[in-house]
Simulated assay, not measured.
Amino acid sequence: MKTKMTSRMRNNRQSKEAGFTLIGMLIAVGIVAILAMIAVPKFTSAIASANTARIQADLSTINTAISVYEIENGEYPENIGDLGNYLQNTKPKPPTGKCYINGSETKIPEGGYDIDRSTHQATCGGKKIAEFSKTKDTENVDQG
Results as ranks from 00 to 15, higher is better:
27 I>C: 03
30 G>K: 07
66 I>T: 10
81 G>Y: 09
27 I>K: 13
5 M>C: 02
36 A>T: 15
13 R>I: 10
65 A>F: 00
93 K>R: 03
99 C>T: 15
90 T>Q: 12
47 I>Q: 10
58 D>Q: 06
26 L>R: 15
44 T>H: 05
25 M>H: 11
17 E>W: 04
103 G>R: 02
77 P>R: 06
66 I>S: 07
44 T>D: 07
74 G>K: 07
26 L>F: 07
59 L>V: 03
99 C>E: 01
60 S>R: 14
25 M>E: 15
63 N>K: 00
94 P>C: 09
4 K>C: 03
73 N>R: 04
44 T>A: 09
12 N>P: 04
85 N>A: 14
89 N>K: 07
40 V>T: 11
35 L>H: 01
5 M>R: 00
54 R>N: 15
78 E>C: 11
81 G>C: 04
50 A>W: 09
3 T>A: 07
91 K>G: 06
97 G>P: 03
27 I>M: 14
40 V>A: 13
95 P>F: 08
89 N>Q: 00
45 S>H: 15
4 K>P: 04
32 V>T: 10
27 I>W: 15
101 I>Y: 10
50 A>Y: 15
66 I>V: 14
78 E>R: 06
77 P>Q: 08
104 S>H: 15
70 E>R: 13
4 K>Y: 10
64 T>V: 03
18 A>T: 00
9 M>P: 07
44 T>P: 04
23 I>H: 12
85 N>E: 14
91 K>H: 12
28 A>G: 08
85 N>M: 13
92 P>T: 05
12 N>L: 13
7 S>I: 04
15 S>D: 05
104 S>N: 10
61 T>P: 01
64 T>M: 14
23 I>L: 08
7 S>T: 07
91 K>Y: 10
54 R>I: 11
63 N>S: 00
80 I>E: 00
75 E>Y: 11
104 S>W: 13
92 P>V: 04
36 A>F: 14
17 E>M: 01
58 D>E: 15
41 P>G: 09
34 I>S: 03
13 R>P: 05
35 L>M: 12
28 A>T: 15
95 P>K: 08
73 N>W: 13
6 T>A: 05
74 G>S: 14
5 M>D: 01
86 Y>W: 03
7 S>G: 00
20 F>Q: 12
85 N>P: 09
28 A>D: 07
96 T>C: 01
48 A>Q: 11
54 R>Y: 13
52 T>F: 01
99 C>W: 12
2 K>M: 11
44 T>K: 08
81 G>L: 03
89 N>C: 09
16 K>C: 05
34 I>N: 01
85 N>F: 03
68 V>S: 09
35 L>F: 11
5 M>A: 02
10 R>E: 08
48 A>Y: 13
89 N>P: 03
23 I>F: 15
21 T>W: 12
5 M>I: 01
98 K>W: 09
17 E>T: 05
45 S>P: 00
14 Q>V: 11
14 Q>C: 01
54 R>F: 11
98 K>L: 06
31 I>H: 02
8 R>P: 03
98 K>R: 02
5 M>T: 00
57 A>K: 11
72 E>G: 06
23 I>G: 06
58 D>Y: 09
44 T>M: 13
101 I>G: 08
